[in-house]
Design a protein around this nucleic acid. Structure first.
Lengths: 352, 352
DNA sequence: CTGAAAGCGCTTACAG
DNA sequence: CTGAAAGCGCTTACAG
């Protein structure tokens, strides 16, 4: 039954064609010093002619290595994730690893399924960029001895290599920028509480407000998913207040678009009556119609850092856990401006 | 050396624990009728207790089936692709297949590499949504007997299952909409010539203009990639004309954003002086600041159709090739309006 | 430097 | 209904 309907040639076929043993072919193709150069050359030539390719299934079964990496993201639809993936992919491909991207759609069930699947498949490593991550998933990876790095969202309960964003400093610098424009009542629309990044940004917001205004007003805090709809809803709640905030820091551009949308519906002028700062700098933010002031996150770098950490971990499983942080830069566009005069803000609010 | 440091249990381990032969465990787990129900129950219980999972590497090596599908996309950063992926993924997961997403970044080299990789890996099928596809890649898939479906971009030279968009009818209906608003000089900004969809839309545009205006003016045609920058550049070329077009149909929303950007820079009012229609309906198009009139493509459906075709093909490799087309719907928002009076258009153009 | 042998973890005829 | 055996395609000690 072997080699029916021109199936792929095997090591045996190559060996036969070369008149040597399969093990010699294997050693030659792996470029082991043990094989004589002439023999190597011959074997390589014939292997190529025959169109031989080693079966990763077979060699993976034998060696336990598959030269593949899995990257699990929670929303492949969000361009932020796409950029980060690219950063990781470039770094990995260069080292001859292949990247399998899996999308969980924010579903914990699907995420566990994928993780189990990749463990079964014996990928050489996993990069996890998912807000749906939970302890069991990560424990499963640890138990299976699969090198894992966490991306953007860190898990507090377990020590793991981590590629993330410098949140505290960045939040403080945006808020300083806003206060320098005269803003006092600054709202905050954060991400899901399950995200470590979202928590860090919220805490940084609070500590800044604490120091600057003497207290952080919980009425100025909103949170939700990273989506337009979520930002839209948060805004309606946030701007119903009197006096209402004159500026709002939003934890993600996608969410900020929802804020822009709601402000437009409510007839609130941006930036005259409301300044908005986003986070990430997605492609839409630079369109003149949007022109969102935002924190530009070096997305590719974030992915490249994750790849770097993973490669290190794979090379040295017992090394100390490491964290790599990327620092965003403020890009001032036209959704921010000087705070309106106190009276104006109050008037505007009471007109509602 | 077996089972050192709590490695995963094997079929043998389960068999030993149950006091049966490995083959019986295999048959039981595969739910073959040949195994007695009680034996099955016992085996299942113990297998579960031991945390046994069949090794896809081993079973793949033996059977040639891996229960995995690869989907190759050219730009994971474009939200259009993300949505299509989701549609395919949902359909596939439901049937217990896992989806590996690979991103080629438009690079032919990387695409060939991934395709070869997936062939080596013996995935059960491939969905190709890439503008970088070329004959050799597809031939490689065919030679390796890997069921393949083409998504959005079809290959003329080879018969393949195809999930795509109804372009001709859709283009005609948009153009009818524009002429009903009084537009005569309608420009067209298309996609890359390597994309079958782009070619179909261009041809549909030409045939419509032919019929409606007596001829299609090549000066009104532009093309480029599906990107903001590309749309931006095309617009500068297109609107330099005198008289300039009063409307433009753009082959993709991303490109249309670039048109919007350029129009804004050039001080051309939309829709008073220029009507713009996009294609796809990406998330940004519904933001009030953008509010782009566009053809909404049922993206998930597109992906689901591809999955359906692939599953069919896998079940029946010798069936006739099939094509599934999805029909977009016009969503009228605020970038389209009545054509300006002839004089106005001329005046505006001469003011430049 | 080369080859024969064992084994990775499964599945599938086949014999009992 | 159950078990012993062969083999998927590789790699890696080991003997020569």
């Amino acid at each position: 039954m072997r080699n029916n309907n021109r199936a792929r040639p095997t090591l045996r076929d190559v060996a036969k064609a070369c008149g040597v043993a399969p093990s010699t072919v294997s050693n030659a193709l792996a470029d082991k010093a043990v094989v004589k150069p002439e023999t190597k050359a011959l074997i390589r030539k014939i292997a190529h002619e025959l169109g031989y390719r080693v079966s990763p299934l077979a060699s993976g079964l034998r060696t336990g290595k598959t030269r593949s990496i899995a990257m699990i993201v929670s929303d492949i639809t969000n361009p932020f994730h796409g950029e980060v993936v690219r950063g990781a992919e470039d770094a990995l491909i260069e080292r001859d690893y292949h990247l399998y991207i899996a999308n969980t759609d924010g579903s914990r069930g699907r995420q566990s399924q994928y993780i189990q699947h990749f463990i079964d498949r014996q990928v050489d490593g996993v990069i996890l960029m998912s807000y749906a991550s939970n302890d069991e998933d990560i424990q499963a990876l640890v138990r299976a001895h699969v090198p894992t790095v966490l991306l953007v969202r860190r898990q507090d309960t377990v020590e793991q290599d981590f590629s993330g964003i410098e949140n505290e400093h960045s939040v403080h610098s945006v808020l300083e920028f806003l206060t320098s424009l005269g803003h006092q009542r600054i709202g905050f629309i954060g991400g899901p509480a399950s995200s470590s990044g979202a928590r860090e940004r919220l805490n940084a917001y609070r500590s800044f407000m604490q120091k600057h205004a003497g207290h952080a007003d919980p009425a100025l805090e909103e949170s939700g998913e990273y989506s337009i709809d979520s930002g839209h809803q948060s805004t309606y709640r946030l701007l119903r207040q009197n006096p209402r905030p004159t500026a709002v820091l939003v934890s993600e551009d996608m969410t900020a678009y929802g804020v822009l949308m709601a402000a437009s519906e409510m007839g609130i002028k941006v930036p005259e009556e409301l300044s908005i700062v986003g986070w990430d700098d997605l492609f839409a933010s630079r369109l003149p119609q949007i022109n969102l002031t935002t924190m530009r996150v070096p997305k590719r770098q974030l992915g490249a850092n994750a790849a770097k950490l993973l490669l290190q971990r794979m090379a040295n499983p017992s090394a100390d856990v490491e964290t790599l942080l990327v620092r965003p830069a403020l890009v001032v566009r036209s959704t921010t401006g000087r705070a309106p005069q106190e009276e104006q803000a109050v008037n505007a609010a009471s007109q509602e």
